[in-house]
Amino acid sequence: MALLEVNGIHTYYGAIHALKGISVSVDEGEIVTLIGANGAGKSTTINTICGILHPAQGEIYLEGEAIHELPAHEIVMRGVSQAPEGRRVFGRLTVTENLEMGAYARSDNNGIRRDMERVFTLFPRLEERSKQVAGTLSGGEQQMLSMGRALMASPRLLLLDEPSMGLAPILVEAIFDTIREINARGTTVLLVEQNALMAFSVANRGYVLQTGEIQLADTAEALRQNDEVRKLYLGEA
C-alpha cells in the first residue's frame, strides 16, 4: 500500500478551479517530485494534502485512511508536515523557539530533544544560530530552519515546497544533499520544485503538472530523458 494516495482531487479557490483531478501516489521511503511552471497547482496540491485547503472532489489516503476531510492539525498529528513555500519562519522568534513550534503537535519530550539534536546535526549552522531571531537569518539559513522545523514534527511524510527558491546555486546543492540525507534516514519526501534538474537528481519518481492537471508521470530518469520535459522544464533544445 502506498504511504500517500491522492486520488483525483479537485480544489477550488473560490470560483477558480485550481486542481482538476490530480492523482499522486508516494510509497514509503521514496522521494517523489512535482514539477511544473508557476500556477500549475504544485503548492495547491501540497496545501490540500496538508489540510489547509480541502478538495471539493476526490480523496486523499494516508496509509489507507482517508484524511481529506480532516483539519490541518490532525493531519500533522498523523505524521505529515511541510516546509512551506517562501520558508515563512516565525521571524520574531528565535531559531530554537521556531524548532519547538515545529514539535508543537507532539508531547514526547525525550523524542523532541532527540529530534532537535538530529536537526542540529543535519544543519550545524542552526545550532550556531540557535539563540538568534529567525528574521535575521540569511535566506539559506531560513530554508534550513524551515526544513528543520518541519522535521521536528517527526513526520513520516515530509512535504517540501520549493526549497531552492531564491537561493544561490551552491546553497541549492547543499539543501538537496540534505534532502537525500533526510530520506536516507527514513523519511519519505514529496518535493515540489521549479528547478526540475535538481529535483530529478534526488527523486525516484516525478509528476509534471500543468494548469491543474497531471501531464506526465514516470520515473525521474525517464522524465529527464523526455523530449517535452527537456524542452519545457530543462531549457534544452
Partner: peptide, 14 residues
C-alpha cells in the same frame, strides 16, 4: 507570527 504556518505546524486555529 504566521497563521498559515501555525496551522501547518499542527495548531488548531479555531
Amino acid at each position: 507570527e504566521d497563521e498559515d504556518v501555525a496551522e501547518a505546524m499542527g495548531i488548531n486555529l479555531v
